[in-house]
């Protein structure tokens, strides 16, 4: 994690550190595990994917002369007989942030080699993610029930449904993949694959290490991060 100590190399702080790290031999990101560096770069690339989706959405929504449906009405949910705007979305946000918190703690306990705590927290994260996917499925089915389709909808511009299903679908796919991996990794933590020097993986000679939990955590937080932007641009605009 932070503050690696490296033989024969002085780690300077701040921008001077940046210059000397970059100018050094062997590694540029000092003390950063290969897999973690790889996940970061992948997430950077994935950021560009989601940015392109959202930019397309902005261009599509901004240039339509047809009225855009009001999200605060479309996504309202009846609670105790009164329509509450964005209720489901608020709950989904709540669930996703909760799972992000448990993930952050799982990483912390992983580094402390607290197998039990780490395992339970990864499992809790997985269950949070699963809940989110379930709620999204409910939201989709509700909208479909009301007649919203990717190619048309009763509330206004047809692009509303197109962008909504595409972008939340793509995000939901990310969440689902994350959930699958969370379950796998919860198993791996409980089974002790990261203890005692680590177990060799499949078709590779790399040994398991708790850093894998941090890598998984990066992915999961990223999914949460994307939701922050989707929440702002889709539901609040």
């Amino acid at each position: 994690m932070s503050d690696p100590k490296i033989d024969g190399f002085e780690l300077k702080p701040g921008f001077r550190g940046m210059a000397s790290d970059t100018g050094s031999d062997q590694t540029m990101f000092k003390g950063v595990h290969w897999g973690k560096a790889m996940m970061w770069i992948f997430l950077l690339s994935d950021t560009f994917v989601f940015s392109c989706f959202l930019i397309a959405y902005m261009k599509g929504r901004g240039s339509t002369p047809v009225e855009w449906p009001n999200p605060s009405e479309v996504f309202a949910l009846e609670a105790f007989g009164v329509p509450v705007p964005l209720l489901l979305i608020a709950l989904m946000t709540f669930v996703l942030i909760t799972s992000s918190g448990t993930m952050a703690l799982a990483v912390k306990y992983g580094y402390e080699k607290n197998r039990k705590m780490c395992g339970w927290l990864v499992l809790a994260t997985a269950i949070g993610g699963l809940t989110f996917v379930g709620m999204q499925a409910y939201e989709w089915s509700k909208l479909i029930h009301e007649g919203v389709r990717p190619w048309e909808n009763p509330f206004g511009a047809a692009q509303f449904g197109s962008f909504f299903f595409m972008i939340t679908g793509f995000h939901g796919t990310h969440v689902s993949i994350g959930v699958i991996f969370l379950f796998i990794y919860a198993y791996k933590v409980f089974a002790g694959h990261y203890e005692n020097g680590g177990k060799r993986g499949w078709f590779t000679t790399m040994k398991g290490d708790y850093v894998e939990i941090e890598i998984l955590g990066l992915y999961w937080h990223f999914v949460d991060l994307v939701w922050v932007f989707i929440f702002a641009f889709f539901y609040l605009w």
Binding site: S2, L11, G17, M18, F29, K30, L225, F229
Partner: peptide, 23 residues
């Protein structure tokens, strides 16, 4: 609010605040 939330997630949950500037 969006950037504040995104910033917090990246800085603390994803540990960027503690990473070296090179990254």
């Amino acid at each position: 609010f969006m950037f504040a939330k995104a910033g917090l997630i990246m800085a603390f949950f994803m540990h960027l605040f503690w990473e070296r500037y090179a990254l």
